[in-house]
């Protein structure tokens, strides 16, 4: 009790000091993205296969013109916990690409793609890409983890807590960015891009990609689908991770219970 009283007194003193020096917060330059509801959020979250497949289609038909996906191999698209295309679909897909390689005499050749290949690069290096686009379009393999924003104190603390955990800042930013071209007179103005002037002109518009499963072909739908796909590309082991986590947690909870009663029994004769 005494301890709580001292903590309380201490908190009062520091609180008062903090008030006195409260920093004038720089007015928010860019607004925070709005929060989407993703099937893969939360401890039990799983990807929506159909969404990942649609998202891949958008990537391939739109974004791939400028952006690489260097760390993803064709075979990954058929692995468990991802879009889960069939092996034959992946073989056919890979075969559509020409891959630079060397033959057994060391001569450079171009051959048909295989499942183990990665998406070929459009440019030899970033400088070549920048020469065409003004700025090199970033590789999208981990972009969903390479972007984020802070919800500020105290919300950022809640983001870590069971039941409230929020780990989708990056993918929410991607969706917001792709839907953020709200100035019809300027296709390089983006509501969510830091500084607003973005070198990527509005990439998506309605009915641009033909979905085959009846999903609405709106800009917002494309934006969400491709963002979900990019989240998977950044965290391809997410389902395995969360599944393992559940088993680990159940084991540890039971173990903790047993340890608690063991400790109680052992200490029973001490006081």
């Amino acid at each position: 009790m005494k301890t709580f009283k001292s903590i309380f007194t201490a908190a009062l003193i520091v609180g008062a000091a903090a008030m006195a020096t409260a920093p004038a917060n720089a007015a928010g330059e860019v607004e925070n993205p709005s929060r989407q509801s993703w099937s893969f959020a939360g401890p039990f979250g799983k990807f929506d296969r159909a969404q990942l497949q649609r998202g891949f289609q958008v990537y391939r038909e739109v974004c791939a013109a400028c952006h690489t996906l260097n760390r993803v191999a064709f075979r990954n698209l058929s692995e468990r916990g991802g879009p889960e295309f069939s092996d034959s679909q992946i073989k056919a897909l890979a075969a559509e690409y020409r891959i630079k390689d060397f033959d057994d005499k060391g001569e450079p050749i171009e051959r048909e793609g295989r499942a183990a290949d990665r998406f070929p690069r459009q440019f030899v290096n970033a400088d070549a890409a920048a020469a065409v686009h003004g700025v090199a379009p970033p590789d999208l393999s981990v972009i969903a983890k390479a972007r984020g924003y802070s919800r500020g104190f105290p919300l950022f603390i809640l983001d870590a807590l069971p039941g409230m955990a929020y780990q989708e800042h990056g993918v929410d930013y991607l969706a917001a960015l792709l839907m953020g071209y709200t100035n019809p007179d300027d296709l390089n103005w983006n509501r969510y891009f830091p500084g607003h002037a973005i070198k990527m002109a509005k990439p998506l518009s309605a009915d641009q990609v033909a979905y085959t499963d009846g999903t609405p072909t709106t800009e917002a739908q494309y934006a969400k689908d491709v963002s979900a796909f990019l989240f998977w590309a950044a965290e391809p082991k997410m389902e395995e991770r969360k599944r393992t986590g559940l088993n680990v947690m159940l084991f540890l909870l039971v173990f903790a219970g047993l340890m608690y009663f063991t400790k109680k029994k052992i200490w029973a004769d001490v006081h």
């Binding site: 972007r147 540890l252 903790a256």
Partner: peptide, 29 residues
């Protein structure tokens, strides 16, 4: 026994970070 119990509780805390919020303490950049 006491350290063992405390350690398992600590592991639950640790596992929460590894499996559910692994990038929370890191930086996107």
């Amino acid at each position: 026994a006491k350290d063992g119990f405390a350690l398992v509780v600590f592991l639950i805390f640790f596992a929460w970070f590894i499996f559910y919020v692994p990038n929370y303490l890191g930086h996107a950049d």
